[in-house]
Amino acid sequence: MVELTLPKNSKVGKGKTWPKPQGATNLRQFKIYRYSPEEAGNPRWDLYWVDMDKAGTMILDVLLYIKNNIDPTLAFRRSCREGVCGSCAMNIAGNNTIACTKGFDELPGGVISISPLPHLPVVKDLIPDLTNFYAQHAYVQPFLKTVTPAPEKEWKQSETDREELNGLYECILCACCSTSCPSYWWNGDKYLGPAALLQAYRWLIDSRDEATGERLDDLEDPFKLYRCHTIMNCAQVCPKGLNPAKAIAKIKHMMVERVS
């Protein structure tokens, strides 16, 4: 359901302004979303001054700088620091992306806000609960389904058929796209969202998969697929440059083709 404002317990209040690091000449201010289940009260925006000469080059470096030098209680997920694990997905300056590949030079001017991926229950600080997102990924059954007996060695595929999977298999499940989608915000419990649908398409057009009809049957529903209104936020924010909106349009096309 469309809810333009946040519920009462989620309104973000004013937080603490942390002291400036000493002797720094190249300072930038960051406004970071803070929430702890162990403290009473609403989430808040804390303000941090970061010495950009010492912080590194990426937003993940900024977060690590804050955690190491200013405030060790700041919680966020990170792992690979090179854009392959998808753990550090968050909203930076108003758009979702992964902190480890977002450079200082790509930032707009002014105070930079950093908050968890939008419209999800917050576990702590920048860590949202992605249970529903993963369940939706599982729902599309992202694995090869066949009925013919398995070949002795492997399921073969021509080079042309393999090329169909380019731009689909690279998804790292960071959830930037799904949580950027207003349709997913309002109907995330019924609409599968861009990430799961991109995966669905990845298996629908795999030449080796033999469950295409079944997979399409599963998506034939007013919400699961058709809540995509091509708002295009998913393609705009994908840190891997993939295009879920296009994949969804192609699934819709397959739906039409099989009845015509």
Binding site: T5, S10, N91, S113, S115, P118, L120, P121, W186, G188
Partner: peptide, 21 residues
């Protein structure tokens, strides 16, 4: 994830209010 809200005391992360269009 509006469906899980009642049973959930955790806050909902900001969405429209922080989004850069």
């Amino acid at each position: 994830m509006s469906g899980t809200k009642q049973a959930d005391s955790r806050p909902l992360s900001p969405h429209l209010g922080i989004w850069r269009y």
